[in-house]
Amino acid sequence: MGRVTVREKILRIREGAVSDRVDTLVVEEPLEVRVNGRPLTVTMRTPGNDFDLAVGFLAGEGVVHRSDEVVGIRYCAGSTTEGSNTYNIVDVALAPGVVVPEASVERNFYTSSSCGLCGKASLDAVRTASRWTVTEDPVALTPATLSELPEKMRAAQRVFERTGGLHAAGLFTAEGDLVAVREDVGRHNAVDKLVGWALQHGRLPLRETALMVSGRASFELAQKALMAGIPVLAAVSAPSSLAVELAAESGLTLVGFLRGSSMNVYTRQERILA
């Protein structure tokens, strides 16, 4: 398994004082995802929970929906001069009958850790692929419960405490209990790791839950929440206009600028019991 952090010598300057220090940095490395031996995508990610990441990515693309649709996951040998395993290639074996993405769908697209996957170009693509609907989900949360989510998620971020350089995605119950948290240098990767974990444990769709993410709420993150059947998406920063549009049309409750007791509820406000 690859390293999550590395130590580097730096020159630190603070208010005119100069000193030599050692800083802890989060690792960013490429991960190639293969399906049944065929390359599908490459994403820049923080090593760790790679199997969850691969499965969560496939769930977000509408390729898999249940745990029994994935029959095996393994690391493939990398291309180092020593012939050792780099742990940067994952192959997912799908069950017979599961439709493998065709060449036109594969696109050999490149996913960066910052921008996420831009392969889904329209709202219609999400409507077609999504198996779950959240419109009738009866979940309800209080503002007090929501206000506690960022700090609970931060407290569970082990790597962030050492580096200050990781995003996170946390899955919570309607009562505010933390179910699981995943970290990554990319927001969308953290969500994929979380969804992949849930799928492999037979927990999709994630009814009556809330997804808390660091950073902003993009269209891609709203899409991933819907693909996992999550009815509430909350973010510490701003949502994009397309994320709000998608949330409104699909019945997703979208909360932005969640900081302390302050927040903006953009869609399906009736789920937030003030």
Rank of each mutant, 00 (worst) to 15 (best):
K152V: 05
Y110F: 15
T80E: 14
S237Y: 07
G62C: 00
P231H: 04
P239I: 01
V64P: 03
N49L: 08
A180V: 15
V64M: 07
G62M: 01
V42H: 09
A210T: 08
A129T: 06
V33Y: 06
S261M: 01
T142A: 10
I89G: 00
P138S: 06
I10N: 03
R216T: 15
A222G: 08
V181A: 15
V179Q: 13
T209K: 07
A93F: 01
E175T: 13
V179R: 14
D91N: 13
S130A: 15
V191Q: 02
A198E: 09
T24D: 07
E61T: 01
P231G: 07
R271A: 05
H201D: 15
P39N: 03
G2R: 07
R21W: 14
E161L: 10
V35M: 04
A140N: 13
P96S: 04
E270M: 04
E270V: 13
E69H: 07
R154L: 03
T86E: 10
L149V: 10
L204V: 09
R182T: 14
A125N: 03
D177H: 14
A95D: 08
E69G: 08
D184V: 10
Y266P: 00
G78S: 02
A95H: 09
I10L: 10
G2S: 12
L242G: 00
L258V: 07
V90R: 07
V33Q: 09
V236R: 12
E175F: 02
L25V: 12
A54G: 01
A103R: 14
T86L: 08
G78A: 06
P239R: 05
F109S: 15
A156W: 07
S218H: 14
G176F: 05
H188N: 12
Y75C: 06
R154M: 04
P47D: 05
G78H: 02
R268L: 00
V6E: 13
R45H: 10
K9A: 11
V232I: 15
R14K: 15
R271N: 03
R187V: 14
S122I: 06
